[in-house]
Simulated assay, not measured.
Amino acid sequence: MKNKISIDKFNYKFIISKTPYRISLGGGGTDLPFYSDLRGGELITGAINQYCLVLLAKRPLDKKIMVQTTETQITDSLNEVENFIVRETLRYFRINNSIHVSSFTTIPTGIGLGTSSTFIVGIIKCISDLINKKYDKMKIAKLAHIIERKILQIDGGIQDQYISSLGGIQLLKVSKKGTVTAKEIRIKKNILKDLQRHLVLVYSGQRRESKTIIKAQKHNLNSNIKIYDQIKEIGKNSKKLLINGDIDGLGKLMDDHWKLKLKLANEISDRNLNNTYGQLKKLGSPGGKIIGAGGGGFFMMAVPHNVEKYISNVKKLGFRYMLWKFDFDGSSIIKH
């Protein structure tokens, strides 16, 4: 952004955006630059009904910046803003004072659902409304990617920014030059209900930092490129199974994906996670996988039959699960 933005002329009292988190449905990780720059990435991803809400408001009586996330800070200088995501997103848009930013989230961070990217998309959605810039969803995703990956230098791919902005179920492709295209995958309503019911999200109880896991994958690059070739093929094969609602087939493919993913880096799993996955399969699932980079977060387990019994047994083992639905709105303004 070339020119400083003056927000004095905007009369909104406040703006609230609602931005969905996501689950990866096939080919996850092929959007990481060390792979996509060589081979091109292709994956299927879906937005879900868990959200990051961002409130953005002009401060009419002073020049201070107030940030409320897990902590609260009031400062006179943008340089002193401690939350680096808020600081650098405001800086990108040349908003230097008289602003209040708050965030609220329905789930913890560091659990593999794209939380940091979703936060950035939500801030940009609010700012675009505040400054009356009618950015489309692809533009917002691209700006979020620039801020997170180029400016903040947070390792990762393109999946999280684009699906949280677009919503729905998307086939995302990233070319060797970094160009991103998105095509919505349309699925019949009755099959959508089956997917939402039979793909069970079980919380592992472990949190992790994705950057550590992504960095570890670069050590055996030649070997890992070949593994991601196979993961990309699994993603391509997942599309037909999703459209047909083939839960058993999806479970077997996810199991194949998980076995391949374990070969990428030791940090992806540990004894506890391996034991948990084994237990969850024995309860009545042909397979599943950890959503996101690995190391913790949610297992998504395919359960073809008797979901109620499966969930009851999950609870008996002491694990928590999360009911979910697909979100088809993407990042949206719910109040201004």
Rank of each mutant, 00 (worst) to 15 (best):
R87V: 04
A144V: 03
G112F: 11
L90Q: 02
D327Y: 00
F298V: 02
T72I: 14
K215S: 12
R149A: 12
S238V: 08
Q170A: 03
Q217C: 14
D8C: 02
D31H: 09
R197H: 10
D270W: 03
L250S: 05
V67S: 01
V67I: 15
S332N: 12
N272S: 12
K13D: 15
G26M: 10
R271E: 15
T75F: 15
V180S: 02
K211P: 00
S36L: 09
E82M: 03
N11E: 13
D229E: 13
I268V: 13
G168R: 07
I48S: 02
I243C: 07
F328N: 13
S6F: 10
L55A: 06
R197A: 03
G110L: 08
D37M: 12
D255H: 14
I163Q: 00
R149E: 09
G26V: 12
G27F: 09
R186T: 12
G297H: 06
I140A: 04
I16T: 15
S116P: 04
I158Y: 08
G251M: 07
T30A: 08
H100M: 07
V101E: 01
G249T: 08
L199F: 06
L242D: 08
K137L: 07
N190A: 04
L55V: 15
N11C: 05
A265L: 10
I214V: 09
N49A: 08
L53D: 04
Q196R: 01
A265P: 09
G330D: 09
N266R: 14
N313P: 01
G114Y: 08
I123K: 03
K316R: 13
